[in-house]
Amino acid sequence: MGIQIAFWILAIVGVVAALAVVLLRDIFRAALALILCFLIVAGIYVTLNADFLAAMQVLIYVGAISVLIILAIMLTRDIQRGSPSNKLRIPAFVVAILFLGVVVFTMTNTAWQVASVSPQEPTVPVLATKLFGEDGFILPVEIVPLLLLAAVLGAIVLVREK
């Protein structure tokens, strides 16, 4: 029962925050709504028994990515112009609604094979075994630092003063 109430509150606040991100004209307020949306998603992860990922969501998205986005807004702020829509506003709305309709139709009409086993808790030991153990995801784990290194180097090269 508690999970249900939590899910509905989180879902409604999350959708409202996401709408605020795309509809507010003030880009800084939109960024604040985005942070709220990230926090709400962390709560949704908790209702899905994903404790480690909820912590990671707060650390990475709320902690790091939001700071990056707000820093970029501060560096490039266009106060008079705000964040208006472009000419494609109506077609974009139609596309989004059509996409939502198709997705909801497919999802409600598919017979998902839901397992009746109660979920794993806590998830950290299982995740660690999967990531670093035999027959796990060790190759992607080795590739990811390369990607991060490339991203960091690329970002430095792009913003460096000539």
Partner: peptide, 26 residues
């Protein structure tokens, strides 16, 4: 699906490049 559609609308309809990036995050 709802969150993805909201992000899709934002990514298509926004002018500000940072707002587009925020929509992609959603």
């Amino acid at each position: 699906g709802i969150l993805f559609s909201i992000g899709l609308y934002g990514a298509l309809a926004k002018r500000n490049a940072i707002a587009i990036l925020m929509s992609i995050e959603i």
